[in-house]
């Protein structure tokens, strides 16, 4: 170890040594494409439609495995069985006895929704939580409300999605039956003329049932972020109301029984579009309106801008 340092080396303090490889600039990444957005913006009223569309895609398992698609599509398949079965029988019979009117109407439209009532309730129980629970649990709503969509438009979008999903269940099977009835008739123009009046009834009945369960289902699901709880709560509430209605019915409070059963309210009101059934219409309409209004108020109160 020397006490006095040797003289400075040549090039001391000069420019840094040039690495031949770095003398020419290496590849540089320029991202000139990503810049401020100056294009047109869609009006804010389209936001609920966009939200509804994406919510439906997510609820029906877009880009997810078949397991998340299985339950909803299995339920829809089950709901189609009565209609498709009846049409098959009809097709077989009409080839057996051509030109003859069938002695009975195998499955009246008015009875279809009642027949698949359980499936409709299960469908609402499965699909509506899928629309809101993941948003609540993963705190997506806080991002939405901060920089995407207002809470009011969010609720509207989710309601539209819920409504569209429910209509799939309340409308598709019955419309399939109607189409089949027309197609398998001996004379399609005659059948069309006969059955045309039923189409608006079918749509009306589908809307009555769908609006009821989509609004109620959404409101129940929005209480919790957990899908399993939401499904349980909805099924429990619906079953509970049916049981309660049964109790009132057996003690002679018939009107109350009709007005309390969450399954009877929409299905029997929908049925009334086809035939005069013996129900307390006013009481049931009031119940129907109360359920819808309370659910909507609860939904609107549930979703607020969150700090």
């Amino acid at each position: 170890m020397s006490t006095s340092p040797p003289p400075p080396p040549p090039g001391f303090g000069g420019p840094p040594p040039q690495d031949p490889a770095s003398a020419t600039p290496r590849a540089q990444v320029h991202d000139v494409r990503f810049a401020g957005y100056t294009g047109e913006r869609t009006p804010t009223w389209t936001a609920p439609l966009t939200l509804a569309w994406w919510s439906l895609l997510r609820a029906f398992g877009r880009r997810r495995g078949w397991t998340s698609k299985f339950v909803p599509f299995a339920l829809l398949g089950l709901a189609l069985i009565p209609g498709v079965g009846v049409l098959t029988v009809r097709a077989l019979l009409s080839s057996e006895f051509p030109g003859q009117e069938l002695p009975i109407e195998l499955l009246p439209y008015s009875a279809y929704l009642g027949m698949i009532g359980t499936l409709i309730v299960l469908w609402a129980a499965v699909v509506t939580p899928e629309l809101v629970c993941p948003d609540i649990q993963a705190r997506v709503t806080s991002l939405y409300f901060a920089t995407a969509i207002s809470p009011g438009r969010y609720v509207l979008g989710k309601w539209l999605a819920s409504m569209a999903a429910m209509l799939g269940m309340t409308l598709v099977p019955v419309v399939v039956l109607w189409l089949g009835n027309v197609m398998f008739a001996d004379s399609i123009p005659d059948a069309l003329a006969d059955d045309a009046a039923n189409l608006p009834r079918i749509v009306g009945a589908g809307v009555i049932v769908a609006a009821f369960f989509s609004t109620l289902g959404l409101a129940v699901a929005a209480v919790t972020g957990r899908r399993a709880y939401a499904i349980g709560a909805f099924v429990g509430l619906t079953l509970g109301s049916v049981v309660l209605a049964g109790v009132f019915d057996s003690t002679g409070h018939e009107t109350l029984a009709f007005a309390l059963s969450l399954v009877a309210i929409p299905t029997l009101l929908a049925q009334r579009l086809f035939e005069d059934n013996d129900i307390p219409v006013v009481a049931m309409c009031v119940s129907y309106a109360v359920v819808i209004v309370v659910s909507l108020i609860a939904l609107r109160a549930r979703f607020r801008v969150q700090p």
């Binding site: 994406w54 997510r58 877009r62 880009r63 997810r64 998340s68 993941p134 948003d135 993963a138 705190r139 997506v140 806080s142 991002l143 901060a146 920089t147």
Partner: peptide, 15 residues
């Protein structure tokens, strides 16, 4: 305005 919250806020079942 853009906002990146401090907590997780993306829907887990979407890409």
């Amino acid at each position: 305005v853009g906002y990146m919250p401090e907590h997780d806020c993306l829907p887990p079942t979407m890409t």
